[in-house]
Design a protein around this nucleic acid. Structure first.
Length: 1195
RNA sequence: GCGCGGUUAGCUCAGUGGUAGAGCAUUUGCUUCACACGCAAGGGGUCGCAGGUUCAAACCCUGCACCGCGCACCA
C-alpha cells in the first residue's frame, strides 16, 4: 500500500485492478491446459437488460466459484454472453419507436427495416449489462463472449431445428395455443402466469327447445317431462324451471359473456340427474341478437368434463376461445366460431353489438344486451385465476392457430439423471458385526467362510425386504460372487449380516439401467451402515430389477472416518466395539458425504429435483413458434399451393433429383399426408449445378433446410429458392429454443472443439428457480440429445431477491435499487459481501441496503487491520519461530485452521452465507478483537521499552514462567504471525471480495513472496489455503491446551471488563487490579491482561486477602480483584450478583436433575456424562464465588 | 385439491438430540496511539400450538394453526 488512507476507498481501487486482470488475460481459459477443468456458463442476461440485484446475486456466486476454482489450481472457463430475448427486446424497441413518434405500429417500418432498428438498438444498449458485470468484478472469459444471434449460434439453432424435424419431433399443427393479444404471438405454457382476478360470474338463462329441425314440436313433446324435472329441479336446482308459457329455461353461469356468440353447444354432465334428459335437445343462444332463430340453435350435449357442483352445472361451450371447450368441441364434432380477433377485439361473427370492441369492453356490452333481453338472472362477484402473458402482462387468449410444436427429446434420460432428494436426512441404523461371524486368515478363506455362512443361513435365492422402500431384494449366487470380486475384508464380512443390511438400507434412487439392458427394468440403489470391529463402513447396495424379480447385484463397503463430533454423538467408540445402543444410527448425509450415488447431476438445494421430476413427468409439446420478427426465423420454405395428383408426380421427380444431389440437411414434406422423408447429407450443394432448375414455382413443397440459409458459399440459395415462389415461414423460434443449446452452442458445437472436449459438461450452473422449466430442464434434454451427455454436474438455485417487506423487486414498486448506485456508494466488494452474507442456500433474500453497508464496514475493517500491520513497519519476516509463540499466537493459528476448514466445508455444500459468516467471525471477532489487541502487548512494549520495564517491576518475578529475552525478536515473530494470518486470510477472502483482497495482497507485499504463477502476479492464482496438518501443528506446538488457555484468559478479561463496568469506571480511566493466580502465568499473558483490561497495573499477589470494598471474579486461572476507590452502586451490584446466583442455581438444578435420573447415567454416552459432571462443578464453583462476592459486598 | 418451503431476540436469519446463537436495532461508557464504517460492557427468547419417541427435543415422529411459493382445476 503506497498510500495509507484511514478509510478504504473502493472507487480508486476497483477499476485499476479489473483492468489489470484483463490486461494480464487472467480470465482467459486455455482449452489445452493440462490443469483439471472447471467451467460455468453464465445464464445469459437479456441483451438490452440492465443489471438487477438478481444478477448481482447470481453472478457473484458464479464469480466466487470461478475464483475459488482458480485458486484450487483448476483451468477455469466462465463463459459469458447475452440472450436476444425475443419478445422482451422487440417490445422494448417497438415501444421506444412509438414513443418517439416514429411509428404507430411495427408494420409501418416493415420487417426488414424494423429488424435493422432492433440491431441498432442492440449495438447501442447491448453492452451495458456486460459493462455492469465487469463493475461487479465478474471474472468471465470475455474473449469468448457469445450472443444467441451470433451467426455461428444461429447455425446451431437451425441445425437443431432440422435435426429434430428429421427425427419427427417437430411438427406443425393447428391447436389451441396461448395467444398474447398485446404482442400478437403465441406463447408456451411456461410463459403464462396465473393471476387471481376479481370479476363476476354472470348467470343467464337460455330457452330450451326440442331440436333444431322442429323446435316448436319438440318443445311440446318435451313438455310431458317437464313437471318431473321441475319438481326435482325446484328443490335442488332452481335454475331449471318452467315459465307459465311452458317454456323451459336453463341457467348458465359464465365469466365470459362476450364469448356467447362463439358458443356452439351447451354441455351438462350426463350423470347429472337434473339435466341428463335434456341431452340432445337444443337451446337458443341469446347472442348475437340479430341472427335468425335457426342460427341461434345450439345443441345440449353431455360431457364428463362438466362439474355439476360448479355454477349451475351447465357449461357453455366456446371451442374457439377456451382450451377445455375446444377439446369438448373435438369430442362432439362441434363447429368452431371465432369471435375474438388476434388483437383482442371482437370480430364480425360476434355480431353488430360487439363487433370492433375490445374483449373487456365487449364483456360489459354483452351483459347489457343480456339484461335488455331479460336473460340475465344475476351476477355475483367471483375471483378466478386468469392466465396472463408474463411479458406483456395482459390476459392471454386461448386461440386456435397453426404453430410449430416440439415433442421433447431425451426425456427419459434427462428425467433420470437428476439426483432426487434422498428420503430426507434420515438416520441410518447401524448394523453391527463383531467380526467373529466369519473368520479366515486370508481373503480366500474369508470368501469360503462367507459362502458357507450364506448357504448355512439360507441366504441364497431368498428375497429380503427392504423396510424403507418395500422392495424385495434377492441374494443370488451371482450377487455373492460380485461381492467377493470387490475384495476387501469388510466387504466380504458384510455377507454375514446381509439380511440385516438389506433390511435397514436407505433407498437412494431408482433409475433405468445404463447402458440400457432390455432385460433390466430398473436399477435401485441403497446405502446401509455397517460397523465391524469398531470401524464404521458405508455399504452401497445396487439391485438390478429384472422384469421378473429383483436380485441383489452388488454391494461395496468403504470405511468412514469422522473427525468431528458426529461420530461421537451417534456412535461412541466404546459402543462400536460391543453391543449397539438402541437407536444408534448415523445421518444419511454424513454417510453419503462425497459419494456420487450413481446419479450424475445434483441440484442444490435438492428439493428442486422433485419439482423438476414432477414437471418432466407431465410434459406437453412445446409450442416453439412465435409471431415475432426478432429471433431465429424458422428455416422452412414453402409455396403453400394445394397438393394435386399432377403436382404429386412432378414433386416426386423433383425429390428424386434432390436426393441425387445430396442436399445436406434438407428434408421435404408432403403437406397432405404429413409424411416426412429425409434427403441424405452430402456436399453436392456446394456445386449447385443447375439444381435450381429442379425447383419450379408451382410445386407444393415444404423445404426444411439448415444448409440452405447458412452454409458458407450458399448464400444465393435462399434467393434461388425464393425466386421459385417458395417463401420462408414468417415466424421465429421461441427464445428458449436458442437458450436451451447454450452450454454447448457457445463452445463451438457441432464441431468437436478443444473447448468442448475440455469444458463440457460444465461443472456448475447457477440460476434462479424461476427458470427451472424454461431453461434448466430444456438444457438437460438438449444436452443429452445433441451431446449425448448432461450439460452440467451441479445446479445451484439461488433464492429470489425481495425487498425488506418480502415483495418481489419491481420497477413499478420502485423497490429495486440500482446495483451500480450501490457499487458507487459502497463499493463492489461491499455489495458482493453484503448480498452473500444475506443469501442462505435455498431461501429468498430480503434485501436491505444495510447489508451492503455492513459489507462496506467489513472491507474497511480489513483495510484498517492491514493498515495496522503496515504501521508496525518492518518487512515481512517470513518464518515464524516456534520458540517465541505466545498463547495468543497459537490460539489465532488454530482459529485460522478452523476457519479454513469451515470455509472448505461451506464450499462443499455451496453454503456461501456460511462462508461469509465464518470470514466475518474469524477476522473481526477473533483476529481483530482479540488477537490484534493482545499482540499490542508485544508490539508496543518494544517501542516503549522504558515504560515496559517499569511496569514489569511490579510483577512478581517468581511467577514468570518464561521471561522475555529479546523484545525485538518477539516483535518480529509477532509480525511474522500477523503476516502469516493476513496472507492466508486475504486468500480466503479473495473469491468474495476480489478487489480489496488484490489491492492488499500487493500493498502488503505478499505477492512478492510468491512464485509468479502462484500469487506473485495476482492473488487470483495464489493457492487456496489448506488446513494445517499434524506435522505443522507439532512443529509450532499448537495444541488444544494452548487454545483452551487463551480462551480462558480472554474469558478472564471479559469478566474483568465487566467489573469495571459494574464499578462505573469510565472506559478511558486506568485502574489497578489485583490478581491472585491459581497457577503460574506467563509474563506476556499478564501484560495482555493488563492491556486488555486497560489497567494502570496488575498487582500479582498470591496471598491477597480481599478487604471489604473490593469487586472480585473467580476464575480457573485465578482471582481478579478490583479495589474500589470511588463510589459504586452497591445495590445495583448486589442485584446483579443475585440475578447471577439465580441463573447458576437454575442451571445447577437442571444438571442435577439429569444426573439424578438413574437412566441417564446408565444410557448416556460416557463423554456426555462427563460433560455434565464437569458442567455441574463449574456452575457450582461459580455459584460459590458469586455468593462469596455478594457476602463481601454485604458485610 | 396436490406438493414444497417457512414459523427461533424488535428486524433479518444461523442452529441435524446434550449449557439457545450471529448481524442489525437498542441501552450504557469511551475522540484507548488500525478502524466512530470504531472499541467495550449489557439488556432482550415458553424456539408457532398440541401430542408422541427419548435418559435428554428448537432439532426426530404425528396432528393442527398461520405465512409464502409452485402445480393442477376453475364455466
Amino acid at each position: 500500500m503506497s498510500e495509507i488512507s484511514k478509510a478504504y476507498e473502493p472507487q480508486s481501487v476497483e477499476d485499476k485492478w479489473y483492468q489489470f486482470w484483463l490486461d494480464g488475460k487472467f480470465f482467459v481459459a486455455d482449452a489445452k491446459s493440462p490443469k483439471p477443468a472447471y467451467s460455468i456458463v453464465i445464464p445469459p442476461p437479456n441483451v438490452t437488460g440492465v443489471l438487477t440485484l438478481g444478477h448481482v446475486l447470481n453472478n457473484t456466486i458464479q464469480d466466487i466459484l470461478a475464483r475459488k476454482a482458480r485458486m484450487d489450481g483448476k483451468e477455469v472457463l466462465w463463459l459469458p454472453g447475452t440472450d436476444h430475448a425475443g419478445i422482451a427486446t422487440q417490445t422494448v424497441v417497438e415501444r421506444a419507436l412509438k414513443k418517439s413518434g416514429e411509428i404507430k405500429h411495427r408494420d409501418d417500418l416493415g420487417r426488414e427495416k424494423f429488424l435493422e432498428r432492433v440491431w441498432e438498438w442492440k449495438e447501442k444498449h447491448g453492452g451495458i449489462i456486460i459493462q455492469q458485470l465487469k463493475k461487479l468484478g465478474a471474472s468471465c472469459d470475455w474473449t469468448r463472449e457469445r450472443f444467441t444471434m451470433d451467426p455461428e449460434y444461429s447455425r446451431c439453432v437451425q441445425r437443431v431445428f432440422v435435426d429434430l424435424y428429421k427425427k419427427g419431433l417437430i411438427y406443425r399443427g393447428k391447436r389451441m395455443v396461448n395467444w398474447c393479444p398485446a404482442s400478437l404471438t403465441a406463447l408456451s405454457d411456461e410463459e403464462v402466469v396465473m393471476k387471481e382476478q376479481k370479476g363476476f360470474l354472470y348467470y343467464f338463462k337460455v330457452e330450451v327447445v326440442g331440436s333444431a329441425a322442429a323446435p316448436a314440436a319438440s318443445a311440446d313433446a318435451s313438455s310431458t317431462e317437464i313437471p318431473k324435472v321441475e319438481r326435482e329441479a325446484r328443490s335442488t336446482a332452481p335454475e331449471v324451471g318452467a315459465l307459465p308459457e311452458e317454456k323451459i329455461f336453463l341457467t348458465i353461469a359464465t365469466t365470459r359473456p362476450e364469448t356467447i356468440p362463439g358458443d356452439t353447444a351447451v354441455a351438462v354432465n350426463p350423470k347429472d340427474p337434473r339435466y341428463a334428459h335434456l341431452i340432445g335437445k337444443h337451446v337458443l343462444r341469446p347472442l348475437p341478437v340479430e341472427l335468425p332463430r335457426e342460427q341461434k340453435l345450439i345443441p345440449i350435449i353431455g360431457d364428463d368434463h362438466v362439474d355439476f357442483e360448479f355454477g349451475t352445472g351447465v357449461l357453455k361451450v366456446t371451442p374457439a376461445h377456451d382450451k377445455a371447450d375446444f377439446e369438448i368441441g373435438q369430442r362432439h364434432k362441434l363447429p368452431v366460431i371465432e369471435v375474438i380477433a388476434a388483437n383482442g377485439q371482437m370480430n364480425d361473427a360476434a355480431g353488430a353489438d360487439l363487433r370492433g370492441l375490445d374483449r373487456f369492453k365487449a364483456r360489459k356490452v354483452a351483459v347489457e344486451k343480456l339484461t335488455e333481453l331479460g336473460a340475465l338472472e344475476k351476477e355475483e362477484p367471483y375471483t378466478n385465476n386468469v392466465g396472463y402473458s408474463e411479458r406483456a402482462d395482459v390476459p392471454i387468449e386461448p386461440r386456435l392457430s397453426e404453430q410449430w410444436f416440439l415433442k421433447y427429446p431425451s426425456v427419459e434420460k434427462a428425467r433420470a439423471c437428476v439426483a432426487q432428494p434422498s428420503a430426507s436426512d434420515k438416520t441410518v441404523a447401524v448394523v453391527y458385526a463383531t467380526g467373529n461371524e466369519l473368520s479366515g486368515k486370508s481373503i480366500r478363506e474369508l470368501r469360503k467362510a462367507a459362502l458357507a455362512y450364506a448357504r448355512q443361513h439360507h441366504f441364497i435365492g431368498i428375497p429380503f425386504k427392504n423396510e424403507n422402500s418395500g422392495i424385495l431384494i434377492r441374494v443370488g449366487r451371482q450377487s455373492l460372487s460380485h461381492a467377493f470380486s470387490n475384495l476387501g475384508v469388510a466387504n466380504i464380512r458384510a455377507v454375514a449380516v446381509l439380511p440385516e443390511l438389506i433390511r435397514t438400507a436407505i433407498w437412494l434412487s431408482s433409475a433405468p439401467h445404463e447402458p440400457a439392458n432390455p432385460q433390466v427394468k430398473q436399477v435401485h440403489r441403497f446405502v446401509a451402515a455397517l460397523s465391524i470391529t469398531g470401524e464404521l463402513h458405508r455399504v452401497l447396495i445396487t439391485a438390478k430389477e429384472y422384469w421378473d424379480g429383483t436380485v441383489l447385484y452388488d454391494h461395496k463397503t468403504k470405511k468412514i472416518t469422522f473427525g468431528g463430533k458426529s461420530l461421537e454423538a451417534h456412535l461412541p467408540k466404546e459402543k462400536l466395539d460391543t453391543q449397539p445402543a438402541p437407536n444408534a444410527g448415523i445421518r444419511l448425509s454424513e454417510l453419503l458425504e462425497n459419494v456420487n450415488c450413481g446419479d450424475e447431476m445434483k441440484f442444490h438445494p435438492d428439493r428442486w429435483a422433485k419439482v423438476y421430476d414432477h414437471w418432466m413427468g407431465g410434459l406437453q409439446d412445446w409450442c416453439v413458434s412465435r409471431q415475432l420478427w426478432w429471433g431465429h426465423r424458422i428455416p422452412v420454405w414453402r409455396n403453400g399451393l394445394e397438393w394435386t395428383g399432377e403436382k404429386r408426380n412432378k414433386t416426386f421427380a423433383l425429390l428424386k433429383k434432390l436426393k441425387e444431389s445430396n442436399l445436406d440437411g434438407v428434408s421435404w414434406k408432403l403437406p397432405k399426408t404429413g409424411e416426412t422423408k429425409i434427403i441424405a447429407a452430402g456436399t453436392a450443394m456446394k456445386q449447385p449445378d443447375g439444381s435450381s432448375k429442379i425447383l419450379e414455382a408451382d410445386m407444393p413443397i415444404e423445404l426444411i433446410g439448415v444448409e440452405i440459409s447458412i452454409a458458407p458459399g450458399n448464400e444465393n440459395l435462399v434467393a434461388e429458392v425464393e425466386a421459385l415462389g417458395l417463401t420462408q415461414d414468417p415466424d421465429v423460434l421461441d427464445t428458449w429454443f436458442s437458450s436451451w443449446l447454450w452450454p454447448f452452442a457457445t463452445m463451438g458445437w457441432p464441431e468437436q472443439t478443444d473447448t468442448l472436449k475440455k469444458f463440457y459438461p460444465t461443472t456448475d450452473l447457477v440460476t434462479g428457480p424461476d427458470i427451472i422449466f424454461f431453461w434448466v430442464a430444456r438444457m438437460i434434454m438438449a444436452g443429452y440429445e445433441f451431446m449425448g451427455d448432461l450439460p452440467f454436474q451441479n445446479v445451484y438455485f439461488t433464492g429470489i431477491i425481495r425487498d425488506k417487506q418480502g415483495r418481489k423487486m419491481s420497477k413499478s414498486l420502485g423497490n429495486s435499487p440500482d446495483p451500480l448506485d450501490l457499487i458507487a456508494k459502497f463499493g463492489a466488494d461491499a455489495l458482493r459481501f453484503g448480498v452473500m452474507r444475506a443469501a442462505p442456500l435455498g431461501q429468498d433474500i430480503l434485501f436491505d441496503e444495510q447489508n451492503v453497508e455492513l459489507g462496506r464496514n467489513f472491507c474497511n475493517k480489513l483495510w484498517n487491520a492491514c493498515r495496522f500491520r503496515q504501521i508496525q513497519g518492518g518487512e515481512s519476516q517470513g518464518e515464524i519461530d516456534p520458540k517465541f509463540l505466545t498463547s495468543d499466537d497459537k490460539w489465532i493459528l488454530l482459529k485460522l485452521d478452523q476457519a479454513i476448514r469451515e470455509m472448505n466445508s461451506a464450499f462443499t455444500g455451496y453454503k456461501f452465507s456460511d462462508a461469509t459468516a465464518t470470514l466475518y467471525r474469524f477476522f473481526w471477532s477473533e483476529y481483530c478483537d482479540w488477537y490484534v489487541e493482545a499482540s499490542k502487548a508485544i508490539l508496543s512494549s518494544s517501542s516503549r521499552g522504558n515504560e515496559a520495564q517499569t511496569e514489569k517491576t511490579e510483577i512478581d518475578q517468581s511467577l514468570l514462567t518464561s521471561a522475555a529475552t529479546n523484545d525485538n525478536a518477539r516483535k518480529a515473530n509477532t509480525l511474522a504471525v500477523i503476516d502469516f494470518v493476513l496472507s492466508h486470510t486475504l486468500r480466503l477472502f479473495h473469491p468474495f471480495i476480489p478487489f480489496i483482497s488484490e489491492e492488499l495482497w500487493h500493498g502488503m507485499g505478499y505477492s512478492a513472496d510468491m512464485p509468479p504463477n502462484q500469487g506473485g502476479k495476482t492473488i487470483m492464482f495464489a493457492s487456496w489455503p489448506k488446513p494445517f496438518d499434524d506435522e505443522f501443528k507439532n512443529f509450532y506446538g499448537l495444541s488444544e491446551r494452548d487454545e483452551k488457555f487463551a480462551e480462558a484468559r480472554n474469558e478472564l478479561v471479559a469478566q474483568g471488563r465487566n467489573l469495571r463496568r459494574e464499578a462505573n469506571i469510565p472506559a478511558n480511566k486506568k485502574v489497578k487490579f489485583i490478581f491472585k493466580p491459581a497457577n503460574e502465568i506467563g509474563a506476556n499473558d499478564l501484560e495482555v491482561l493488563k492491556l486488555l483490561l486497560n489497567a494502570e497495573a496488575i498487582e500479582v499477589n498470591p496471598n491477597f486477602q480481599p478487604a471489604k470494598k473490593v469487586l472480585a471474579v473467580r476464575h480457573p486461572l485465578g482471582e481478579l480483584f478490583l479495589p474500589l476507590e470511588g463510589l459504586i452502586d452497591a445495590e445495583a451490584e448486589k442485584a446483579r450478583l443475585k440475578k447471577e446466583i439465580e441463573k447458576y442455581e437454575s442451571e445447577i438444578s437442571k444438571v442435577e436433575q439429569k444426573l439424578a435420573n438413574p437412566n441417564f447415567a446408565q444410557k448416556v454416552p460416557a463423554q456426555v456424562l462427563e460433560e455434565h459432571r464437569q458442567r455441574l462443578i463449574e456452575w457450582q464453583n461459580k455459584l460459590a464465588h458469586t455468593q462469596a462476592a455478594l457476602a463481601g459486598l454485604q458485610s
